[in-house]
């Protein structure tokens, strides 16, 4: 994998990097800062694997900001986004434990969010238990 120079101009895609972001890195950021941090990573030709997930309002904010960037950032066509969460059918005690852990950590740490630039990620195929990333050639 070739890590491409970061910047607002994506240029010709030759490779990409995968970046993992622990939730602790965004826990104390406000909505704006979180979105800016995420888009900064994605615009640098990275596929971001984020521990936890965004709030629904943050997700729409991410979509709005993404749409605003299309046509303004060269070669940027948007993002592919997928979230995989824990099993909803878990027992009461397990749910309670998870709820407590999430409340203490400030986010759903049982979830994983994957965000990649559409120039690199062609499609994210998702089902409740799996996410498949189909990449552009």
């Amino acid at each position: 994998m070739i890590k491409k120079k970061r910047g607002r101009n994506l240029g010709k895609i030759k490779g990409f990097a995968i970046q993992f972001l622990p939730y602790s890195e965004i826990r104390n950021l406000d909505d704006n800062q979180r979105i800016r941090r995420i888009l900064g990573i994605v615009l640098g030709n990275n596929i971001l694997i984020l521990q936890g997930k965004l709030e629904p309002e943050e997700e729409t904010r991410l979509i709005e900001d993404t749409m605003a960037m299309i046509g303004h950032v060269r070669n940027f066509k948007g993002i592919e986004l997928a979230v995989i969460s824990g099993n909803k059918k878990e027992g009461f005690l397990r749910k309670m434990k998870m709820g407590l852990a999430n409340a203490l950590s400030g986010g759903d740490l049982g979830a994983i969010t994957i965000i990649g630039p559409a120039t690199i990620v062609k499609e994210m195929k998702r089902n409740p238990k799996r996410i498949e990333l189909l990449l552009n050639r």
């Binding site: 709030e55 629904p56 309002e57 997700e59 729409t60 979509i63 986004l81 997928a82 979230v83 994210m124 195929k125 998702r126 089902n127 409740p128």
Partner: peptide, 17 residues
């Protein structure tokens, strides 16, 4: 189509919120 598209989940999540 596959309903597990994140856009669907985001829309519904926002309406619930």
């Amino acid at each position: 189509e596959n309903p597990y598209n994140q856009v669907n989940i985001t829309i519904i999540g926002n309406l619930v919120a």
